[in-house]
Write a protein that binds this DNA or RNA. Structure first.
Length: 549
RNA sequence: GCGCUCGUAGCUCAGCCGGAUAGAGCGUCUGACUACGAAUCAGAAGGUCGCAGGUUCGAGUCCUGCCGAGCGCGCCA
């Protein structure tokens, strides 16, 4: 319940008390909301929501509760509409909460870590090429979500899983090998299926760098012998490239996990053995199957193919099993919406291994529809017709890109019109929010003060614009907790824009640096608090909070 | 065909546990810089919340059906 501001908590507590007093009823929770400001600072629908329990006209009940309410921090209590109770806070209570916010500083809205650790896996792009604009959404969402979960008191660890053991790495190696051979006169690389090769410009770059390092040495051995080395070189190149892009985009990880290590450690075999013991595995048509249909999946899945190799299921199960063994009790995978069929089958496998059904949680991110000037751009890594994340960052900047990515819910489709993004970069809402922050910084520069030194709030009443701003500020803890529990990032941008609006309005109406010392100090406190909260919010999104712009 | 997800202003999107007059930004129109930053503010126009039923004192929100979009339904990952 620390997810609410102190004030909200006090209102809720007083209400519960009043209900007990007036009706002898013990409610487990009271819903307190922030209504249209014309109604008041806070409101509750207890009388309406519990109409059945009270068995009386909601308005009458609300009246009874209002009369029993003993809360000196409230300036007024009113029954309105069909049975709402509206509250206005006393200036003293607002000032106290503002002081609490200033005292908390960067820690405002942040909770101490507790509970079982969560492993958040995101991006996990195959190291077969540069990150694309579509991957950018995963990166921005995952990184911001990790920050939000951490702020909300979850113990979260972020991991990147490199699929470096599969067939696609081999294809990358062959693609590079072909280009590599082309760099030497009269040399060729034998290819079975030219259609399956990666075509991007980066493939040639990798080949050229390989030539610089090793000259033609890989063409002097048999292709099958030379290929592993080329694959390793190409994979490392891609991992490096992806890493650079992530760093640039301010996307962080605590650990990286290689699929290959699961083959090397024997973890996959071990998991297969355990699955066999579980009884959920059978052989048919020369393959080894998991009876996943008995565990909630649509159909049974193959674990070991007829040709003896593993399907992707096997290493994936071993990987998730490893997460469990490392002590994580919740695994959250951030995946593309095209992997919608994935959760039930992996979950089935994990349950067969004896893990709880709710261990794995999946957040599906809808694909980014890339549009340039209203015309859709088809993204295909194979065909080489993709726009890289780096190119996007070059065009619109890190702040705008990060903000734009998470502004809309990860579960809805997003149109990313490159032409518009470039052209309107000055109009991007991120600048609206950043501008509020820079404006405040400017006030403090002019006043010759450091906002972090502001700790006290002289008593006095607040004007309507100040009150609106304060209440918005006090909403931060609830926004963070709400976003964390629903694993959504987009509430933050929505909140920050609302907060910036409150500030800009306050700023337009009221002069901060006035003669009256108390008034000035009170308004400076308001500014310091706003700057602090904007900074926290932008920080959670990986966006800079500029002192000037 | 079956399953999952989505459908809110011209465009991009919010809408907390079912509550009061559904909100922002962009775009359009009208105003405001001799006060701390006009990347701002005030105001206007713009909505059958995909459609139709149902539950409820009350539905954008919950249930059912339909329409539309995306994704999935591989011994690909």
């Amino acid at each position: 319940m620390a997810s609410r501001s102190g004030l909200e908590e006090r209102v809720a507590g007083a209400l519960q008390e009043a209900v007990r007093e007036a009706y002898g009823i013990e409610l487990d929770g009271v819903h307190v909301e922030r209504p249209n400001h014309a109604y008041g600072d806070f409101a509750t629908n207890v009388a309406l929501a519990n109409a059945r329990v009270f068995r009386r006209n909601p308005r009458e009940v609300a009246q009874g509760i209002a009369e029993a309410l003993d809360a000196p921090f409230l300036e007024s209590v009113e029954v309105a509409g069909p049975g709402f109770i509206n509250f206005r806070l006393s200036p003293g209570a607002l000032g106290e909460e503002l002081e609490a916010l200033l005292a908390a500083g960067e820690g405002y809205g942040r909770r101490e870590p507790s509970g079982a650790p969560i492993l958040l896996e995101y991006v996990s792009v195959n190291p077969t090429g540069p990150m694309t604009v579509a991957h950018g959404r995963h990166a921005a969402y995952g990184d911001s979500l990790a920050r939000i979960l951490g702020a909300a008191g979850r113990k979260v660890s972020r991991e990147y899983y490199f699929n470096d053991g599969g067939n696609q790495i081999r294809l990358l190696g062959e693609s590079v090998a072909v280009r590599y051979a082309e760099l030497f006169p009269d040399r060729q690389w034998p290819v079975l299926d030219p259609e399956s090769l990666y075509r991007g410009e980066y493939v040639r770059e990798i080949a050229e760098e390989l030539k610089i390092r090793d000259d033609d040495q890989h063409l002097n051995a048999a292709p099958e012998e030379a290929l592993p080395e080329i694959m390793a070189f190409a994979t490392l190149w891609c991992i490096d490239d992806i890493g650079r892009t992530l760093t640039r985009a301010r996307v962080h990880f605590d650990s990286y996990f290689n699929e290959k290590s699961l083959y090397e450690s024997g973890a996959i075999e071990k998991v297969i053995e355990e699955l066999k013991e579980s009884g959920y595995v059978y052989e048919s048509e020369g393959a080894l199957w998991l009876a996943s249909s008995q565990l909630g999946d649509d159909k049974d899945r193959v674990l070991i193919k007829k040709n003896g190799s593993y399907t992707y299921m096997a290493p994936d199960l071993a990987y998730h099993r490893d997460k469990w063994e490392r002590g994580f009790r919740t695994a959250v995978d951030v995946l593309g919406a095209d992997h919608a069929g994935y959760p039930p089958r992996i979950r089935a496998g994990l349950v067969a291994l004896g893990l709880p059904e709710d261990f794995l949680d999946v957040e599906l991110v809808r694909l980014v529809k890339l549009v340039r000037g209203g015309e859709q751009v088809k993204v295909s890594k194979r065909a080489g017709t993709f726009v890289t994340l780096d190119e996007l960052l070059d065009e619109v900047g890190e702040d705008a890109a990060r903000y734009f990515y998470v502004r809309s819910s990860h579960r809805t489709e997003m149109n990313f019109d490159l032409a518009v993004a470039v052209q309107q970069s000055d109009e991007n809402p991120v600048y609206y929010v950043q501008y509020a922050h820079a404006r405040i910084a400017s006030i403090f520069r002019r006043a010759g003060l450091d906002p972090e030194d502001i700790k006290e709030v002289p008593s006095g009443d607040f004007a309507p614009e100040e009150r609106a701003l304060l209440l918005e500020l006090f909403d931060l803890p609830r926004v963070i907790e709400g976003a964390a529990s629903r694993r959504e990032v987009h509430p933050l941008p929505t909140y920050l824009e609302a907060l910036a609006t409150r500030f800009h309005r306050f700023y337009t109406v009221h002069q901060v640096l006035v003669e009256d010392e108390e008034l000035r100090a009170r308004r400076l406190a308001l500014c310091a608090a706003t700057k602090n909260v904007l900074g926290i919010g932008l920080g959670l999104l990986g966006v800079e909070a500029p002192e000037r712009m």
